[in-house]
Simulated assay, not measured.
Amino acid sequence: MKITRQEVEHVARLSRLALAPAEIDTITGQLDQLLGYVEKLNELDTTGIVPTAHAVPMENAFRADEVKASIGLERALQNAPQSEESCFVVPKVIE
């Protein structure tokens, strides 16, 4: 697959990147090499190979849910700069 200078300029414009003409030439060449390598990888026979999302097996890192007592209203409001009744008082943000 051959990538053109116009395609690089178009993607740069969409990405709001200001690239110098020399940078565009360099990136065009690099992307063309990269896409050539990917095209070469597409020639490999991958029948019978299971697709993977991760290179190594992953397990859920979360702990099991446990029912515990809460910290209580007084303790929750203890460090609040300002509280009223059983609520935090915060500055008004919507008029």
Rank of each mutant, 00 (worst) to 15 (best):
Q30Y: 02
I94A: 15
H10A: 12
S70Q: 10
M1K: 11
I3P: 01
G29V: 05
I24W: 00
K68C: 04
I3D: 01
P91S: 05
L14W: 02
N42K: 14
V90W: 09
E59S: 15
Q82S: 10
T52P: 00
G48D: 01
E84M: 11
A80H: 02
D25A: 13
R63Q: 11
T28P: 03
D65W: 09
K92D: 15
A76H: 11
R16A: 06
T4L: 12
A64P: 05
E95T: 14
K40S: 15
G29C: 02
P81H: 08
E74V: 01
Q78N: 11
Q78V: 11
H10N: 10
N79G: 11
T47V: 02
N79K: 14
E59A: 14
L34K: 03
A61V: 09
L35M: 14
S86H: 02
L73R: 11
Q30W: 01
M58S: 12
H10L: 10
E7T: 06
Q30H: 01
T28N: 03
A80L: 04
L14M: 07
T46W: 02
E43N: 08
K68Y: 03
R5I: 12
R75H: 08
A61Y: 05
L35D: 08
Q6H: 09
T26C: 01
K92F: 14
I94S: 15
T46G: 02
Q82H: 10
L31T: 03
K40Y: 15
D32H: 09
V89H: 04
L31N: 01
D65A: 11
E84I: 10
L19P: 04
S70G: 13
M58P: 03
A76I: 09
D25M: 07
L14R: 07
S86K: 02
A76N: 09
G36Y: 09
A64H: 10
E23N: 08
H54G: 03
I71Y: 09
V90R: 12
I27N: 00
T26S: 03
V67C: 01
L19Y: 07
S83E: 00
E74S: 03
